[in-house]
Deep mutational scan, measured.
Amino acid sequence: KLPPGWEKRMFANGTVYYFNHITNASQFERPSG
């Protein structure tokens, strides 16, 4: 399970990334916590 605010998303080319809808942060590494 991801930390609060984070969700797993995917680009059109299939690349997975993680987006935080609270802070609008995005990253390729899975957030810890």
Rank of each mutant, 00 (worst) to 15 (best):
N13M: 03
K8H: 06
F11A: 14
Y17M: 06
Q27P: 00
T15W: 07
N13D: 15
P4A: 12
A12V: 08
G14K: 04
F19R: 02
R30D: 11
A12R: 10
S32M: 14
G5P: 11
P4E: 12
E7D: 05
K8L: 14
G14L: 04
W6K: 00
N13Y: 03
Q27E: 04
S26K: 11
V16Q: 06
L2V: 04
K8V: 15
G33Y: 14
P3T: 04
E29L: 08
L2H: 01
N13W: 06
G14T: 02
M10W: 12
G5S: 05
S26Y: 13
A25E: 15
E7L: 06
A12C: 13
N13A: 04
S26W: 15
T23P: 00
P4V: 10
H21W: 14
F28W: 11
W6T: 00
M10H: 10
Y18K: 00
P4T: 09
P4Y: 14
F28V: 11
S32N: 13
V16Y: 11
A12S: 12
A12F: 07
F11I: 05
T23L: 07
Y18V: 00
R30N: 10
K8I: 15
S32R: 10
G5Q: 07
F28P: 07
H21R: 13
L2S: 02
M10T: 13
H21N: 13
S32F: 12
T23N: 07
G33T: 13
A12G: 09
P31L: 01
F11D: 15
N24L: 13
W6A: 00
P31T: 01
F28T: 11
R9G: 04
P4M: 11
P4L: 11
Q27K: 04
P31D: 01
T23M: 06
K1D: 15
P3W: 05
N13H: 04
F28M: 11
E7I: 09
A25F: 09
P4I: 11
L2Y: 05
H21L: 15
W6E: 00
T15H: 07
A12P: 15
G14S: 03
G5V: 04
G33I: 14
V16T: 09
R30T: 08
